[in-house]
């Protein structure tokens, strides 16, 4: 029968394709690594993660232990290579422990924000009837400037790092919801969704198993970029005294504490400032790189 003959020709074709076969993740990673700036950002992020995870190993002193005899030592001092602050606390150790807080707050708030944003986005993109209501609610959240909304929430809940996480996550929800909704709107018109409907699949199954896996790319990019914003906002809120309270080692709080000594010991503000800048920069360039790497139409050699 003609069938068996031609099948082999189809298989030859499939095998040819197979040699080019690559897992999606590997392919994206390769494309990402072509981008030098993204590689640089990735290195900074990895350093931050290592510092945060193994903070007690890297810190040379207890970050909150005061030593008034060695107060306000400059950069490069003996035993304190980044100097000490006005209470004699080791700046390097405080930066290391601060990395831990930024990372935790960043992951926590972005995680919570994604959870809310993805849920709202999926529902409003998929169910036409709920779309209007949810999007108007999202517009409402958008109407507040981000930092003001965060301050409002903290004013209601009280000042603490946990509340900072909540505040920043709420502020991440509307953007995430819009991004997810956009992807869902285009994915739900695909024929494979219709095919699942004709099989009798429930809406929940279609959303979770077929819609969500196909809109991961924009979500990943959003999450990476949002990490930068979240870390920056945490520092900003702590600088304003709404986040981490003294004596917690937090970068924003360190700048706030150091500003009184700006002329005598400028490293107290400059060092945590550089730390914030590097990390925010890193997450931004990696997010940019990911966006390019995940877009199959992007020619990276240009």
């Amino acid at each position: 029968m003609a069938d068996s003959n031609t099948l082999t020709s189809e298989q030859v074709y499939a095998n040819k394709k197979e040699s080019k076969k690559e897992k999606m993740i590997v392919k994206t990673a390769k494309r990402l690594l072509k981008n030098k700036l993204a590689v640089f950002g990735l290195i900074i992020i990895i350093i931050q993660v290592i510092l945060a995870v193994f903070a007690p190993l890297f810190a040379t002193y207890d970050p909150i232990k005061q030593d008034l005899t060695n107060a306000e030592l400059g950069i490069g001092s003996d035993g304190h290579w980044l100097g000490t602050d006005n209470y004699g606390r080791d700046v390097w150790s405080r930066i290391v422990f601060g990395a831990r807080i930024s990372l935790l707050v960043g992951i926590g708030s972005v995680g919570l924000g994604l959870l809310g944003g993805i849920a709202l986005g999926l529902v409003s993109g998929y169910f036409k009837k709920l779309d209007g209501i949810i999007m108007r609610f999202v517009d409402l959240l958008f109407a507040f400037p981000g930092i003001l909304l965060a301050m409002l929430i903290i004013a209601m809940l009280g000042t603490s790092l946990v509340n900072v996480v909540i505040a920043i996550s709420i502020w991440s929800i509307p953007t995430c919801a819009r991004i997810v909704r956009g992807s869902v709107l285009s994915i739900k018109k695909q024929e494979y969704i219709l095919a699942m409907k004709s099989l009798g699949a429930s809406n929940f199954r279609i959303l979770v198993k077929h819609v969500l896996p196909n809109c991961t790319a924009p979500i990943i990019v959003f999450a990476t970029m949002r990490m930068a914003t979240a870390i920056l906002s945490t520092a900003a809120l702590s600088f304003l005294g709404l986040g981490a309270q003294p004596p917690t080692a937090e970068w924003g709080a360190m700048i706030a504490a150091g500003q009184d000594f700006m002329f005598t010991s400028p490293h107290l503000t400059i060092v945590p400032g550089i730390a914030i800048m590097l990390v925010v920069f890193a997450f931004n360039v990696v997010g940019d790189g990911l966006r390019d790497a995940l877009d199959p139409n992007m020619d990276l050699d240009q």
Binding site: Q190, E191, L194, L199, A201, K209, N214
Partner: peptide, 29 residues
């Protein structure tokens, strides 16, 4: 009652293995 779709490229979820895609009918029904 089932349907065979026009575009064989658009009618399969690109993120799902063929086995899983076919299995789903049995999970549902």
């Amino acid at each position: 009652m089932q349907m065979i779709f026009q575009d064989p490229y658009a009618s399969l979820n690109p993120r799902q293995r063929i086995g899983d895609a076919l299995e789903e009918a049995f999970i549902i029904h």
